[in-house]
Amino acid sequence: MTIDPGKNPNETEAADDGAEGREPDNNWRDVFLDSEPGLRAFLGRRLGQHADAEDCLQVVFLKAVEQGQNIPVAARKAWLFRVASNQAARIWRDQSTTTRILEKHAESSAANETPDHLENLVAQETTRKLRQAIDQLPPSWQQVVRLRIHEGMTFQEIANHLQIPLGTALTQMRRALEQLAAKVTRDEDS
């Protein structure tokens, strides 16, 4: 299955799954078009099968149309890769050897799917932990995260604005994200 992101998704066959009547805003379309080669490369590496990667790409685009309206413009490309990564993991799970065996008996797919409401609960919990973790970051790091993700400033603009070297702005962003990841993971493990 292939998709044409320049086309209205309502005209694609999978649009009947729930995206009916929704129009992607121009920014989403631009972001998707810009990200498509990278997403394809990423999914190809993750899934191995070209067909699986194309299916996954389709789902990513539909999710962007359905759920992406609240994502800040600056974070949309990252959000697409995040959705792609999660979708690839799901496909990988569903197509594991065990699943394939069970599929032969036509019983497995429903049992192996994670219910949406559970995923939502996990996402809400992660969001809550992230908010707490963000508050614990050094103020200068919080500032860089906010300016990049929510204000949409480039790293160079942030560096100029805060009068710090570009490398420092990048490093602060990266360390902030790493610390957030460590914090959320630690909380999940404990």
């Binding site: 974070a75 890769f81 995040r82 969001t127 992230l130 963000i134 929510h150 994200l177 990841a181």
Partner: peptide
């Protein structure tokens, strides 16, 4: 590289969805 990209994308996506708007008690522009 795919792993690294996935990790970074996951975090950025989560932070973006966590809805911080910069009005945190610590952040100050």
């Amino acid at each position: 590289m795919a792993d690294q990209l996935a990790r970074a994308a996951d975090l950025i996506g989560n932070v973006a969805m966590s809805g911080i708007d910069g009005k945190s008690s610590h952040s100050n522009d």
